[in-house]
Design a protein around this nucleic acid. Sequence first.
DNA 1: AAGCTTCCTTACCATGCGGTCAGAATACTG
DNA 2: CAGTATTCTGACCGCATGGTAAGGAAGCTT
Lengths: 213, 213
Amino acid sequence: MPAKTPAKTPAKALTLTEQARRAQLIGVTVDLIARHHYSGTSLARIAEAAGISKAAVLYHFPSKDAVVRAAYDSVIEALTGHIGAAIGTRTGAAALEAYIRSLVGHLRDHPAHTRMIVEAISEDAEVEDTPHAPGRQASVAALIAAGRDAGDYRRDVDPAVTAVIVNGALDGIVSENLADPAFDTAAAAENLIDLLRRSLRPSPPGEDTSPVA
Amino acid sequence: MPAKTPAKTPAKALTLTEQARRAQLIGVTVDLIARHHYSGTSLARIAEAAGISKAAVLYHFPSKDAVVRAAYDSVIEALTGHIGAAIGTRTGAAALEAYIRSLVGHLRDHPAHTRMIVEAISEDAEVEDTPHAPGRQASVAALIAAGRDAGDYRRDVDPAVTAVIVNGALDGIVSENLADPAFDTAAAAENLIDLLRRSLRPSPPGEDTSPVA
DNA sequence: AAGCTTCCTTACCATGCGGTCAGAATACTG
DNA sequence: CAGTATTCTGACCGCATGGTAAGGAAGCTT
C-alpha cells in the first residue's frame, strides 16, 4: 500500500522533511501572492520560488489550490491567534479596543500577510462560500454587545451594524497603509478608538438619544 | 487608408453600430466580471456573451484589457456622476451625509457595479498604480475639512484619517450587502451618519477634548 | 547489502488563454 | 448596381496553465 497522503489515523505521522517542505511552500506562496496577486501565482512559480519542480509541489499538496488554501489558512491563523492573545481576558470596551489595536498592529508588522488577506476576496474557485473570515462580523458584534451590556456603550447601539462599520473602518486603515506605507496606522487606530468612544458612550443626562434619523 | 481605430481628429467619428457594440460589450463585461470575477472573465466568454466572435471583440477594442478597463471606467463614471449630482451645492456636514447616502444607494441599486468595484483591487496587469479611485480619500478628506472649517465638526478632527475611516466603513457596508443581500444598507448608512454626528460634532462646553490617547 | 519508503525530476498532456490573419458578409454611397 | 468602407468569422499560433506518469536517487531498517 503506497502511502498517498501521509496519514495513518491521527494527524501525527508527518515526516520532518514533510513538515519543513510544507512550511516552506506555504511561506513562498504567501510571498508570491503578496507580490503577484492570486491569479498571477502559478504552480510553476511556486515551485521555482521553492527551488523544486512542479511535481514535487504536487507531491506535498494534492493540488495548487490546496497550497493556496493552506497559505491562506496559515495567515488567518496567525492573525486570529495574535488577536486572541491580545484580547485575553479583557471585556467590554477594553476588549474591542484591544481587538482594534492588535489587528492593525499585526497587519502592520506583516505586510505580506496583509496583501494576501486583502486580495483574498474572490480567489479562483467559483464555489467559495467563505469569502472572508466567516464569523468576523459576528465576533465583533458579540464584543460590542458585551460592551453594551456592561454599560460601556449606549443601550441603543446596534451591535451587528456597528460591527460592520468598525470592521470596514479597520479594513480601510489597513488598505490605506498598503497604498501609502507612510500612513500612520497606529495613529489611525487610536483615532478610530476615539471616534468610537465619543459615539458609543452612554449619553450624558440631558441629551438627545435618537440614534437614527 | 484602412481605418484602424475610427478616429479622425476629434472624438466624434464613431459609427452608430460602433457605439452600440461598445456599449453592449461593456455591459456584458460588467455582468461577467460581477459573476465570474476578473480572472475568470476571458475574451472568449465576453465574445460568447455578446454573441460575436473573439476577433470581433478585438475589432472594437485593441485588447481584452481595454474592454475590461472601459467597463470599469463606465461603472466608476456612473458612480461618481450619481454622487456628484447628489452632493450638488450642499456643503459641510450635509455634503458628507449626501455622499454617504448616495454612494450606498447607488451601489445598492447596481449590484453588478458593486461586485465589479469591490473586486477591482488588483486586476490582472501587474503595473497598475491606480488601484482604486485615485482621489477618493482626498475628496472625502476635503469634504470633512470643509465641514470642520464651517463649524460642523470639531476643530481637531483629522480630515485625512477620518476620510479613510469613513470610506472604509462605507466599503464595509457595501461588502456586507453583497455577502448578505438582506442587510439593510440604508439603515446602516443612517447608523454611520449618526455615529459621525456624535463623534465629530463640536464638544459641548465642559467636556474633555483630547482626541487621541 | 537488500529492500522498502520517502522524496523528487524529467517529460509529457490537454486545455484555455490573448491575439493575428485572410477573407467573407454586410452595409453605406455613388 | 457598382464600389468601397465597415463589420465580422473561422482557422490558426504561441504560450502558460494545472496536472499526470514513470522512474531515479536518497535514506532508514533489518
